[in-house]
C-alpha cells in the first residue's frame, strides 16, 4: 500500500504500479524478516544498517548497536495493532474477558510501558519523556498515525504475497 502511495496510485486499484515500486527497493534489501528477533540479530551481526521496524524492537536494537536511531516518517508512522482474541467456542469466555480487563487496567498498562514491553493504550498512563521515547505515546503522535484498512488488506493478501515472492524469490 505504501509502495502504491510512493508510485502515486492506490495499491488496491493498480497493483502493477505498486509492485513496480516495491521492486525498486530490491537492490537494497538484504532480507525480509519474519520475526523481530531475527531483525535484531541482523543488526547485531552487521548484516543490515537500517530496517522497517516496530517501536517495541528499538530498545533491543539499541542494546545491540547503540548508534541506531529511530527515524520518524514524515507522513506519520504506520499504526500496527496488537489484538487479544477469544476463539469461537472457547471454554471460559468470562475468564478471557477478565484477562483482557486485567491487561487493560491502568496499573498493568503503566508497568508494561515502563518495563519496555509495549506501548500503552490506556490514556491515563503517564510516562516521563525518557520512558515515552521508546513508544508511540501522546495525543499528537497518536493523531499523526497512519491507519491501515486491515479488512481490505487481508482480502488482497494472498495474491500480494505471491507477487512479493515473485519479486524477492525468483
Amino acid at each position: 500500500m505504501k509502495a502504491g502511495d510512493h508510485a502515486g496510485v492506490d495499491a488496491f486499484a493498480d497493483e502493477d504500479a505498486a509492485f513496480a515500486a516495491v521492486e525498486e527497493l530490491k537492490p537494497n534489501v538484504v532480507k525480509n524478516y519474519n520475526t523481530g528477533s531475527e531483525m535484531i540479530n541482523l543488526f547485531s551481526t552487521g548484516e543490515i544498517t537500517a530496517a522497517v521496524a516496530q517501536d517495541f524492537t528499538l530498545g533491543q536494537i539499541q542494546a545491540a548497536v547503540p548508534t541506531v536511531e529511530w527515524a520518524e516518517l514524515e507522513e506519520g508512522a504506520i499504526a500496527t495493532l496488537n489484538t487479544v482474541n477469544i476463539p469461537t467456542g472457547a471454554a471460559e469466555p468470562e475468564l478471557a474477558y477478565e484477562f483482557i480487563n486485567f491487561i487493560l487496567s491502568p496499573e498493568i498498562q503503566q508497568q508494561l510501558a515502563e518495563q519496555g514491553v509495549d506501548a500503552p493504550v490506556v490514556t491515563s498512563v503517564e510516562l516521563t519523556p525518557e520512558q515515552a521515547s521508546l513508544w508511540t505515546y501522546g495525543a499528537d503522535v497518536i493523531a499523526g498515525l497512519q491507519r491501515i484498512d486491515y479488512a481490505k488488506m487481508n482480502a488482497a493478501k494472498g495474491g500480494w504475497v505471491d507477487r512479493w515472492n515473485e519479486i524477492f524469490g525468483m
Binding site: K31, N32, V161, W164, N165, F168, G169
Partner: peptide
C-alpha cells in the same frame, strides 16, 4: 536462504 532462496518447506510455512 530467506525469501531469496525459498524452498518447499519455507513456502509451505508461508
Amino acid at each position: 536462504g530467506g525469501e531469496q532462496v525459498m524452498m518447499m518447506g519455507t513456502l509451505m510455512y508461508q
